[in-house]
Design a protein around this nucleic acid. Structure first.
Length: 554
RNA sequence: UGUCCGAUGGUGUAACUGGCAACACGCCUGAUUUUGAUUCAGGAAAGUCCAGGUUCGAGCCCUGGUCGGACAACCA
């Protein structure tokens, strides 16, 4: 019958909650802080949160966790929204933690009135000292036992702007000896006289993550608040606030974040790459940001497929980027238009093809797609072929062009190399070949069997383009366990620009959302940056190259 | 010296809750192929961190270890 795919542990939780009647439907949320661009790690979280709601008939809110005005910007809000939509998801509501500032302020007052929060005049150093260590209990602040009235008044004064940054904080009154460090009177509010991207200067006190997140979940009736492993110790505090405030009991669940080989997945470090100019921006095609991989030509479908394949669990993982590349290739193979492009041209003259003559030969746009169209490719006496598709002294198993050897020109004729013409310095200037007129593609009556097929462009008709070939930005496989500054692992050859590249004329109609397979060279997409007449293509991913593997073996 | 989380082929994820460890990527072999791609067929690869225990039977349960990760920002 229908083969049931096994559920991941979150789907199991949701399914059980639905089955037991705990919830009629679920609400999840994706809660980015607008202090950077979204990356592949976020893609996993997005696919999880939105995917769960989609699968079980619930909804997902987009909530910006904008509680720290000094790092957050509207630019980031906009890019985040665009990236989520590009990935193919639509949120139910667009919300902001800052929408809840007034409500959060009330919540804080509730706790003060319950004797569960107090204003502390200690400095941040003193508070850090009071915290103790994981193995040693903390000590109580001298301000811990202020009266409720005094706390109420002080907290109101904090909001009113009577104090400077750092002068006072509001703390939860829990237990300085608690085994969980996060429960040792955590800070709820701090003073920051800073401009907030949405509330402007309306506030000078801002809630900490712990005092904002759970309550925001509660306000939105989030049933499943899904975050990464490092928040596990926060869960106890999350529940403490919700319990003492007696608000909607949202629950937090944790999963292991995505790690990719050769890939930095920390917003802080990605920002550093941008700021220090190691890359051209957040959308540099070498960046693991969604805007970067999009510009590079990755498709949202392939990223969603990837997120599906890697699964979800609670153990640390390091996923081979090869899997991501596989997903990209698999999708691109189905949709990319095949085009002939010569990267390192060598001229071929067909001595028996009439001078001045040219003909149009049809070529399939995509043999994988029966619905795909075909385009006409101009053919003439003078052609360019790929330098690597010719070898003067060829090994036995080399199927391409060599002196005296025959090869098929894709969608055209079989040719034979008769003569190699060289410069004075020994460099190959031209290959003089003859073509077999009866071997025309589609109507071959020559009976000749050739092992190899190569691509070509007609010199007279070719379009010059520029290509950007990308290699990994980092040289170290597991950057998480690497020592020292990441600058030590930057790959100086991560970008190679080639501007002596010739393409068949059909490439002129390229658009930035089109995907191409440049035969044997990989998948490419037009860069949106291309100005004027220059067509710049980014290489999305290479093709698997069995020949390279073969030659490496010997 | 603490608390919490975790441990299954090279990588990642499964295993109907106690019944011969499966799927995908990668790797190897062969076939097809107008691009050494794609496609297709087959194969190698873990006996489930270790030691005990319960049981007819343990990756799943119990006990004790080992290893890895997280936790002491007025960051999220």
């Amino acid at each position: 019958m229908t083969e049931e795919k096994s559920l991941n542990f979150l789907e199991e939780i949701v399914e059980n909650d639905l089955k037991s009647g705990k919830y009629k439907s679920i609400i999840t949320r994706f809660p980015p802080e607008p202090n950077g661009y979204l990356h592949m790690g976020h893609a996993k979280s997005i696919c999880l949160n939105f995917g769960l709601a989609l699968k079980y008939g619930g909804k997902t809110n987009l909530r910006f966790d904008d509680t720290n005005p000094v790092t957050e910007e509207t630019e980031y809000v906009d890019s985040i929204k665009g990236d989520i939509q590009w990935l193919g998801f639509q949120w139910a509501e667009e919300l902001y933690a800052s929408d809840y500032f007034e409500k959060l302020f009330e919540f804080a007052n509730v706790l003060i009135k319950k004797g569960l929060a107090y204003v502390d005049d200690s400095t941040s150093e003193e508070i850090a000292l009071q915290k103790g260590t994981p193995t040693k209990a903390g000590t109580e602040s001298p301000f811990r036992n202020r009266s409720i009235e005094e706390n109420l008044e002080l907290f109101a004064s904090m909001r009113a702007g009577k104090y400077k940054d750092g002068e006072k904080v509001l703390r939860a009154k829990i237990d300085m000896g608690h085994i969980n460090m996060h429960m040792r009177d955590p800070i709820m509010y701090r003073i920051k006289h800073a401009h907030h991207h949405r509330t402007g200067n309306a506030w000078c006190i801002y809630p900490m993550y712990d005092f904002a997140h759970g309550q925001s979940d509660a306000i939105e009736n989030i049933t499943h608040s899904i975050c990464t492993l490092e928040f596990i110790p926060h869960r106890e505090l999350y529940d403490w606030f919700i319990n003492n405030l007696e608000i909607y009991p949202s629950h937090q669940y944790e999963f292991a974040r995505l790690n990719l080989t050769y890939t930095v997945m920390s917003k802080r470090k990605l920002l550093q790459l941008v700021n220090e100019g190691h890359v051209s921006g957040w959308d540099d095609p070498r960046m693991p940001t969604l805007s970067g991989v999009r510009r590079r030509g990755y498709t949202p479908e392939s990223i969603r497929d990837f997120c599906e394949r890697i699964g979800v669990a609670k153990r640390e993982n390091l996923i081979d980027v090869g899997l991501l590349e596989f997903c990209v290739r698999e999708h691109l193979n189905k949709i990319a238009l095949r085009r002939m492009v010569v990267f390192d041209p060598v001229k071929v003259t067909l001595t028996n093809y009439p001078e001045g003559k040219s003909e149009m030969l049809p070529g399939e746009d995509n043999p994988e797609d029966p619905a795909a169209a075909s385009r006409d490719i101009p053919f003439s006496r003078e052609l360019y072929i790929e330098a690597e598709d010719f070898m003067e002294v060829a090994p036995k198993k080399y199927f391409r062009l060599a002196p005296g050897q025959m090869v098929r020109l894709k969608s055209a004729y079989i040719i034979k190399c008769d003569e190699v013409v060289k410069d004075a310095d020994g460099k190959i200037r031209e290959l003089r070949c003859s073509y077999v007129p009866e071997s025309k593609s589609g109507s071959d009556t020559s009976g000749i069997q050739v092992k190899g097929t190569i691509h070509w462009v007609s010199v007279a008709h070719a379009v010059k383009i520029t290509t950007r070939m990308y290699d990994r930005l980092f040289k170290v496989e597991d950057l998480g366990s690497a020592e020292g500054d990441f600058k030590d692992y930057l790959n100086p050859d991560s970008l190679q620009v080639m501007d002596n590249v010739y393409a068949e004329p059909a490439i002129r109609s390229a658009g930035t959302t089109d995907r191409y397979q440049f035969l044997r060279k990989g998948y490419f997409t037009l860069d949106p940056d291309a100005k004027g007449d220059t067509l710049i293509f980014n290489r999305t991913v290479t093709l698997r190259d069995m020949w390279a593997k073969e030659t490496k073996k010997h």
